[in-house]
């Protein structure tokens, strides 16, 4: 205890000037928080790996091969391709969006309330907006990794043939951010426990997964239900992924619309999230 040279502890000169530190935080703050966030993900690394490898494997076998056998036994092809080819890019988008609904709900609540992990960095030169974007960046990296694994499984199953199929990776990640960023903003506004997330899960995520043209074309649904797809990032992402994966015949203007919708959702969500983080952490 008395061995410590307190004067050196208080001012060794190695830490750098405050203005220099602030400048560094201004430039790299997002990455600093993303690093923290990624490190905390190591606590459940094995779950991430199991989900990342298990999901594509199970879904492709069950839906593509198992269910696909029923569809072809019924003499049906979808969209001119086998059920496996039809369903694979869609399930890729859907599972990665589902991961976003996990990563950007409870962990956000934990950051503000349960574990208060946001408050430490907020006391440094790193800004609340950078914390918000840093968290988003970290989970986006997870989505990209997950998407790459899924894409490799698709190749292995022969579920995709196009040389452009690698585009499904950024498409799936973008879809996840398009859904995740607004969700993160919403989670940042919640004061009390995580009950609201159960609602999100059951009344938004579930219907979105089932009615976004993932397992069957949107057009087979009655018209009065098709709007669910139009407002769903899963549907826009799915259509793009099919276009890249097997050349779904989608008019050019619609492809542009899909991209625009996803990018708009992501940007607006991230902007709102920055605002809500700032409001809450500087209150």
């Amino acid at each position: 205890m008395t061995d410590i040279d307190v004067s050196r502890l208080a001012a060794s000169g190695r830490a750098g000037e405050p203005t220099e530190l602030a400048g560094r935080a201004r430039r790299f703050g997002v990455w600093y928080y993303a690093e923290t966030s990624l490190r905390s993900m190591r606590a459940y690394l094995w779950t991430v790996v199991a989900v990342g490898v298990g999901q594509p494997l199970f879904y492709l076998v069950a839906l593509g091969v198992g269910l696909g056998a029923l569809v072809s036994a019924n003499g049906q092809t979808v969209d001119g391709v086998s059920y496996l080819v039809f369903v694979a890019p869609a399930v890729m988008v859907a599972t990665i969006v589902a991961a976003a609904s996990g990563e950007l709900t409870y962990p956000v609540m934990a950051g503000f309330r349960w574990r208060r992990t946001y408050y430490g960095p907020a006391a440094t030169p790193v800004t609340p907006a950078q914390i918000s974007l840093g968290h988003l960046l970290a989970v986006t990296l997870r989505f990209v990794a997950q998407a790459i694994v899924f894409w490799l499984f698709m190749l292995a199953f022969g579920a995709t043939s196009s040389p452009w199929s690698w585009l499904t990776v950024p498409i799936a990640a973008l879809s996840a951010v398009a859904f995740g960023a607004p969700l993160q903003a919403y989670a940042a506004t919640l004061k009390r426990d995580g009950m609201a997330f159960n609602f999100v899960q059951r009344f938004i995520v579930m219907p979105m997964m089932l009615f976004s043209g993932t397992y069957f074309p949107l057009s087979t649904m009655p018209t009065y239900l098709q709007w669910i797809g139009w407002i769903s990032p899963v549907w826009h992402g799915t259509q793009l992924a099919r276009w890249a994966s097997y050349g779904l015949r989608e008019p050019a203007w619609l492809v542009v619309v899909h991209v625009l919708v996803l990018v708009t959702m992501a940007v607006v969500g991230a902007a709102l999230s920055c605002r809500f983080y700032t409001r809450r952490l500087t209150r």
Partner: peptide, 14 residues
């Protein structure tokens, strides 16, 4: 919801 989506949507294919 599962029943509705899978039963009818997928049912049309199967």
């Amino acid at each position: 919801l599962y029943l509705l989506a899978m039963g009818w949507g997928l049912g049309a294919l199967v």
